[in-house]
Design a protein around this nucleic acid. Structure first.
Lengths: 217, 217, 217, 217
DNA sequence: CATGAATGAGCATTCATTCAT
DNA sequence: AATGAATGAATGCTCATTCAT
């Protein structure tokens, strides 16, 4: 994450003492907790400070405002997902297309559904306009990871076209979000996982398998 | 849309005089405008009333509160999309799988990208918990429309499995959302449209075709 | 009731047509109903008009404002009580002191406890500063009625002293109010009635019975 | 006063710093002042805050709302009266009936008429439904104090009947209220005091003395 | 006369943020 | 560094009252 966030979103100071580090961690953790337990609307700085066990004054010593808290939280959560994907993709040395499909879907799913409530909270928080650059950047990381994995795939001879990678990543991440956000379809998660893998395989094969397939698209 | 929303989300009274009708329309339109121009956080009842050119009291004569305003807006926008999809799907009499894929994606895309800003506003508004039932219901309508179209498809012999329809609809709607919300990928819309159609074709064929039916695609 | 209320408390026009009379009565009755069922805080002009089955505009044709409604209501209710007392006292031709005590307490009690809820509502409404003159005037009527009855009493040789009449009336009306307003002592009403009569007898005898009693007070 | 008020009527937090204590006192005092000078209808939280010289936010740091302010005020004022009565009654060791009458009336009168305007404000505030339990409880305290004093009275052989105590207390408190609330009879206070004492003596004697014990009064 | 749509001042309350201690 | 009391702009909402139809 080498983003350069607007000044007012950057933490005010980097804690140097151990005590200060602990304080920042507590505030940070409390932000996540409150977001999960109360929702975005009830996420107030005073509430976060109380939950963190520090005074509101202390909170403002480290974060210039409410947005900065959210920014840091979203940044961390998105980074976790991106790192997991990047690691998993990098670990696949000579994957088949089906391997690629299964690996990507599997890893993304695990990252998101391991704590579905956290995922929903993240979706909520990232709706803020301020976060869109952060989300954008994460998507690029996922696309890059996927593209490099595909390039190492024997079935894919050239660099995978951007449109294909973009579409695939959008469909996996967006589809998963759709399912996670719809409380009514929470039961369908396992089935969706299977179908999303099949869908990915089918799409990647149609895009990359032998023959001049892309010319008829 | 035959939902029965909680009382506090229903409009307070139906205007009887012509003047009142115009007022309600103005308020309604202003809600959409403010949501688009200011975002959900800046959507205040006073702001909406001002934009609508009426007093705050007048707004509360027709809507019991801010949530009701949003509810009505989301209801209308979702209903528009669902109706377009339902009509388009119903009009396809003996579609091929590729027809199904193209038709659904095409219609959904047209509905969403005809006014992309409105679509983004809708995404924003619908992240409110109160709206989730509304969104859920709309998804069901899309799934039903898709399922019935597939059933009329000669290549599909039985009723299409729920998981397939759920996955397909989630992937199309969620993927589109992902692209629309990411300001960086706004340029990629046409390419995404093509790929999403290809993806849909590939997935539907893999789900429904028993053999290498690609020759009739 | 020959009070001269402030202009803004007087009804705006005296209805001459029969329809208008019915309208005024309906508004008036609705005011009482709303006060009883909703309390003073929820007594709104719009609510009253709706309950009366007329438009808010019509209400304002007859009453210059909310206060005027309350004023008229309180006036009527107080007048009813005063009239009952006046009639009962005037009907006693040669009462004993015990007759006086029993008659006054009995009549006041009957007037107030016949509809205890109405009485409580009246107490509420009359807390308004604007109503104090009205209450004052009613008290004077009760005092006059009591004084004239006592003067016709053979045991009372001179005109009853003002302090005695004032105290007696205050104690009967105030004591009754205390009991009626205390929801916990609602059960004690019959017992209180008996005691209040005994108290009145004892007080009047101590004030008026033969012997130079007042000189030692 | 060991009542357990509903949460929303209890103060929000106990001030720990000296500055905070002063703030709470100022708010509290301002509430009384505004109630006295403006009446219940004009008692607004903003008005109170302004009068107290603090911001509206500060007020809400200590009181959860307008009702809590009133509740605290009424509680304090009623408690003062009850404590004075309890002390005075407890101090009478072997009182005659006339002593009882004089003591109770004297003490109650002193408590109420020491600051007649405050007393009127209290009557206003206590007409709120929420306060009725508080008033009820105070009345019980007065009744208990009076009953225990009477029991120590040589002329009263058994425990005084509830009806008598209830009636007496109601008549003293209610009669006093009647006089205090009637601006026209404000001049009569001293005369009323004398008469109320005479009335109390006469009632207590009629209730407790077996014969004509007037000779020892 | 009656209607009811429209008004807007006013109120209760929240919460991000500052600053003296 | 940490505290927490204080701030006050901003928000959702009510309701007495007016006036064009």
């Amino acid at each position: 994450m080498t983003l350069i966030p607007p000044t007012r979103l950057k933490p005010r100071k980097n804690p140097v003492q151990a005590r200060a580090k602990a304080t920042v961690d507590a505030i940070f953790e409390a932000t996540a907790q409150v977001l999960l337990s109360e929702g975005l609307a009830r996420l107030t700085t005073n509430h976060v400070a109380t939950r963190a066990g520090v005074s509101i004054g202390t909170l403002y010593q480290y974060f210039p405002g409410k947005e900065a808290l959210l920014y840091a939280l979203v940044e961390q959560l998105l980074d976790q997902v991106a790192c997991q994907i990047e690691e998993a993709c990098a670990a696949a040395e000579r994957p088949t297309l089906d391997d690629c499909a299964a690996l990507f879907v599997e890893t993304y799913f695990a990252a998101k559904t391991g704590d579905p409530e956290k995922a929903r909270a993240l979706y909520l928080a990232s709706s803020h306009l301020e976060m869109s650059a952060l989300v954008s950047r994460t998507i690029v990381r996922l696309q890059d990871a996927a593209a490099q994995m595909l390039r190492r795939c024997p079935e894919v001879r050239a660099a995978p076209p951007d449109e294909v990678v973009t579409c695939w990543v959008a469909v996996v991440t967006g589809g998963t979000r759709q399912i996670l956000e719809d409380t009514n379809s929470a039961m369908l998660l396992p089935g969706f996982h299977i179908e999303l893998t099949r869908l990915s395989s089918a799409y990647l094969r149609s895009a990359f398998s032998s023959g001049p397939k892309r010319s008829d698209g």
